[in-house]
Nucleic acid binder design. Structure first.
Lengths: 332, 332
DNA sequence: CCGATTGCAGCAACCGATTGCAGCAACCGA
DNA sequence: TCGGTTGCTGCAATCGGTTGCTGCAATCGG
C-alpha cells in the first residue's frame, strides 16, 4: 500500500483536496453524497490522514506525554497502562517518557513534546521536580500532576495519604498491634514525605509511639530497615511495620526473610500502593490500595478541563484496604 | 518564550531561511561566520526546529515505536528502560506502545507510527503475533523483533533458551537435584514454548525424567503449579523446579508459601529473566539472567543495519546465572 | 418574478521546515 | 586579463493537510 496523500483521493473522487479534508474533519460541511463517495475512495485507496501534516497546520496534536521517573517501578507501569487506555478512549496517543529522576530530562521532554504540539502533558514527578519551575517550561502551563499533592496552580490527582495511613493503622490495631513502625522510602519523594507526615500525625493523635525506621536511599531502604529491626532488642521491636510503598515492603520482607525473620508470624508488614505484584509475593502483601485506574482517567479529564476553563482542579481520591497475608494478629 | 519559526531567526540574522536550515542540518555547507551568527541568534531567540515540519518534509522522523504486550510486566519495563536510553543515544525518541496482547493493536500502532514517518520499529511480540503478517503492514518491513527466535526475514535479538535451561539444570544438579520439574508460563508465548522445548530436549539427553507442571494460563500458572505440587505424593515430588520466567517463579513461590511449603528448604525454585525485582523477593530469586541491557542496544543496531544493507540479522545472546537464595542443596 | 439566503465546493494562502537549482563574488592558473 | 572553479547564499517548489473567503446554483419569501 503505497503512501496516499489527500490529493490522490481528491483526484480519484473528482473533488478538490479541501473537500476531502472537510469530509474527514468537518463532516457536516460537505454534502452527504459527496462525503460518502470520498470516504469510499479513501477506503479503497487505503488512505489515512497524515497526523504530522495535520498537527503542523492545526498547531495541535493528539500526542500526550506521560512523564515518569522510572518505568521499571511497577507502580508507574500500572499507571502507564491505565493512562494509556484512558488516553486512547479520548483519542489521544500516550507517549511514555522516562526521566530517570532528572529534572533536566523532564523539562527536555516537555519542550520536545511542546514542539510536537502536544495539547497537554501528564507528569508523575520524581523527587526533585519543582512545580513552579515546571510551569516555566513551554508546556508547563498545560500539565497535570499525578501522585503529588500541592497547592500550586497546576491540577493534581492524588490519593489521601492520611486516610491511607489511618486505614493501615486501624487494620493493624484491630489485630492487636500497638508497636507499629514506619519505613520511609526514598526520602525526597513527596508522597513518601506526605505519608510519613500522616503517620507521625496519627501516632501523635493516637498517643502511640512513632517508630520510624528511616532507611534513606531507595532500594536499600528495606535492607537497612531490616538491619535496624534485628538489631533492636526483642521486647522493643515493633510488632508491625508499615512501608512507605509496596516496593519498599517487598524489599523489607525479602531482607527480613534473609535474616530469618518470618512474616507475618514475627512481624506484620503492610505496603502502600496496591500493586498487582503484591498478590505474587511471599507472603502475599496486605496493603493500602490506590485506585490507580481511576487516577489515569481523572488525570486526562483534569487536563481537558484545564484547557477549557483554565481551572486547575485538585482531586484527591480515597484509598482502600487490600488485606492479604502479610499481616496477622500480634504474637503474644 | 513564544513560538519561533525559522523565518524569525532568518529575519533577525539577516539571511534567508534556507541558510538557517542549512546552518542546522548541513553545517559544512554554510560559512562558519554566518553559521556562528545564526546559531547565536537562534540561541537568543530560544529557537528550536520543529520536529513535525522537519519530519514532514524529510519523510523520516526520529520516533521509534517499542511495542510490548504489557508494560506492567517488569520484564518489559526493564526492556523499555534500556531501550529508551539506547535509542536516546542514537538520537531517537522511543514511543512506548502497549498492545494488551492484541494483534490488531500491534498493527494499528505500526501503521500509525508509519504515518509519523518512524524510521523503523521494535516489537516484543505477544503470544499471537504472526511475523509474516507483521511484515505485511506498512512499517512491517522495517521492524526488529526482540525476545523471539524465528527464521523469518525480520531481524531478531533473543537469548539462547537452550543454554539458559542448561545453566539452570547444571546449577541444580550441582546441588544434588535429580527430580527437576518445569513450570511453563503463558503457553502461547514463543519464548515460553522455546524454553519448554529446551527443557524437554535436555531432560531426554540427560536421561532425567521430564516433569512438566503445565499450568496453562498466565498469572495463575504459579497457583496451579503449586496445587499440583502439593497434591503429589511426597516421594514423587520434584526437589527443584524451573519456572518459565521470573514472574511465574514469583507466583509459584507465593502460592507454595501460602500452602506452607518452604523455599528453598523443601523445594528449590529457579526463574528465568533476571529481573531486578528478584533481589526483592522472599527468598531472593536464583535465576537465569538475560542481558536485557544489551538487547536494547543491539535491537537498535540491528534496525540501523537493516536500513543500510537490508540485511536481516539474527543475534542470539548468552544468558548467565544469577545465584541468589531460592535454591539450595537437595534435602535428604 | 426578483432579491436574499443557504448549502456546497473550489481557490489559494499557510503551517515550518528542506533541497535542487541558479546566481554571484572571490579566487585560480595560464 | 580572462574563462573556469569554488564557496556561499537566495529562490521557490514541496511535504500533506486546513481554513477563510469567494462563487455558484438552488431554494425561499414576498
Amino acid at each position: 500500500m503505497a503512501e496516499m496523500s489527500i490529493d490522490d483521493v481528491a483526484a480519484r473522487a473528482g473533488v478538490h483536496r479541501s473537500t476531502v479534508s472537510r469530509a474527514f474533519s468537518r463532516p457536516e460541511a460537505v454534502n452527504p453524497t459527496t462525503r460518502q463517495r470520498i470516504l469510499e475512495v479513501a477506503e479503497s485507496l487505503g488512505y489515512q490522514v497524515s497526523p504530522l501534516a495535520q498537527a503542523l497546520r492545526r498547531k495541535t496534536s493528539n500526542l500526550v506525554p506521560l512523564i515518569v521517573p522510572d518505568i521499571t517501578n511497577p507502580f508507574y507501569g500500572e499507571l502507564a497502562k491505565t493512562m494509556a487506555t484512558a488516553a486512547a478512549e479520548k483519542g489521544y496517543q500516550l507517549v511514555l517518557c522516562v526521566t530517570g529522576g532528572e529534572v533536566a530530562q523532564t523539562n527536555a521532554y516537555l519542550t520536545a513534546l511542546q514542539g510536537m504540539y502536544a495539547p497537554f502533558g501528564i507528569v508523575a514527578p520524581s523527587t526533585s521536580v519543582d512545580l513552579d519551575e515546571l510551569r516555566s517550561v513551554a508546556l508547563g502551563s498545560r500539565v497535570v500532576v499525578v501522585d503529588r499533592v500541592d497547592k500550586a496552580q497546576v491540577p493534581t490527582v492524588t490519593v489521601d495519604s492520611a486516610e491511607g495511613i489511618a486505614l493501615a493503622v486501624d487494620h493493624l490495631r484491630g489485630l492487636g498491634h500497638r508497636r507499629i513502625a514506619y519505613v520511609s522510602g526514598i526520602s525526597g519523594t513527596y508522597t513518601s514525605r506526605d505519608r510519613l507526615a500522616a503517620y507521625e500525625g496519627l501516632a501523635a493523635k493516637l498517643e502511640i509511639p512513632a517508630m520510624i525506621l528511616d532507611a534513606g536511599a531507595g532500594s536499600e531502604a528495606g535492607e537497612r530497615a531490616a538491619e535496624l529491626f534485628v538489631n533492636t532488642a526483642y521486647e522493643e521491636r515493633p510488632t508491625a511495620v508499615i512501608a512507605a510503598n509496596d516496593m519498599v515492603a517487598f524489599a523489607l520482607i525479602s531482607s527480613l526473610g534473609a535474616r530469618g525473620v518470618s512474616i507475618p508470624d514475627e512481624v506484620s508488614v503492610m505496603g502502600f500502593d496496591g500493586l498487582e505484584l503484591g498478590s505474587r509475593s511471599n507472603p502475599r502483601l496486605t496493603t493500602v490500595r490506590q485506585p490507580i485506574a481511576d487516577m489515569g482517567a481523572i488525570a486526562i479529564d483534569l487536563a481537558e478541563q484545564l484547557l477549557n476553563d483554565g481551572e486547575a482542579q485538585h482531586v484527591v481520591l480515597a484509598p482502600d484496604l487490600l488485606i492479604r497475608a502479610s499481616t496477622a494478629e500480634v504474637p503474644r
